[in-house]
């Protein structure tokens, strides 16, 4: 059976890896191609590259960064950031992405999810959902444009919609937990995973091996983390050893 994936994420701005807290206060965390190579040799199962400034600055993820990372990388590469059209997605695939992630554009034009799925296949079509908990509504709400815009859209029904539209995978980030190292939002992960028929990648809040184990237990098929790897708090190899001790199958 499938082995859960451990996925480091490179948030890229202007060709450099950055990391912030709740998508703000970005600080430099290194060169994308160097980090990609290190993470693969440490045992990463996949790599996600997100151009965090792409949508705001109205441009698609730096193709050059994708090419450099691809040249190094013999594991799957998911790229997102500012994709608005099939042509944008095609350009990222040509540059070396294996999967393309869309976020704001899926909310603006849901038909893009279906078009990508038909053109490139569901396995290539990732929808990223950034969710924030609203105590007013007692529910998770979708935010877009790097968290700066609250949508009139609840996260769980939206996840079901993108599943129906043809997405092959959901990259689910808790905006509340992003960069806080307080653990994944397990209730959010469980609620989404239970309501869709496609794999869910949990993101936002990873700090300790137990957090990853909890997210997988809650129903995630893959777990994404950034800060803990960038800061060399733990290597992916060490993390996998600890997960194995917690009873998680690792590659």
């Amino acid at each position: 059976m499938l082995i859960p994936r451990i996925i480091p994420c490179l948030d890229v701005r202007d060709g450099r890896v950055v990391k912030g807290i709740q998508f703000q206060q970005l600080r430099d965390a290194g060169d994308p191609a160097e980090l990609a190579a290190r993470y693969e040799s440490d045992g990463a199962d996949e790599l996600v590259v997100l151009d965090v400034s792409a949508t705001l600055e109205n441009r698609i993820a730096l193709l050059e960064t994708v090419q450099k990372v691809r040249a190094q990388l013999s594991i799957p590469l998911t790229v997102g950031g500012g994709v608005k059209t099939l042509a944008d997605a095609q350009a990222l695939l040509n540059a070396g992405a294996d999967k393309v992630s869309i976020n704001s554009a899926a909310v603006r034009q849901p038909e893009l999810v279906t078009q990508m799925s038909q053109q490139f296949g569901a396995q290539c079509t990732v929808v990223a959902i950034d969710a924030v908990y609203s105590s007013d509504e007692s529910d998770w709400i979708v935010v877009t444009r790097s968290g700066s815009q609250k949508e009139n859209l609840k996260a769980i029904p939206w996840a079901q919609t993108v599943d129906r539209l043809g997405a092959g995978e959901i990259l689910l980030t808790s905006f509340d937990r992003d960069g806080t190292r307080s653990g994944y939002d397990l209730e959010l992960v469980a609620a989404v995973a239970k309501n869709v028929s496609i794999p869910v990648i949990a993101s936002g809040g990873a700090n300790l091996p137990i957090h990853l184990q909890e997210a997988l237990e809650a129903g995630a098929h893959a777990v994404l983390a950034a800060s803990i790897f960038h800061d060399q708090q733990i290597s992916i190899g060490q993390l996998k050893q600890q997960l194995a001790k917690l009873g998680v199958a690792v590659r």
């Binding site: 499938l2 082995i3 859960p4 199962d45 569901a122 396995q123 092959g168 995978e169 794999p199 098929h221």
Partner: peptide, 10 residues
């Protein structure tokens, strides 16, 4: 099963 099979297998 979840289809497509998406991930690492032996």
């Amino acid at each position: 099963l979840l289809v497509p099979q998406l991930g690492w297998n032996t």
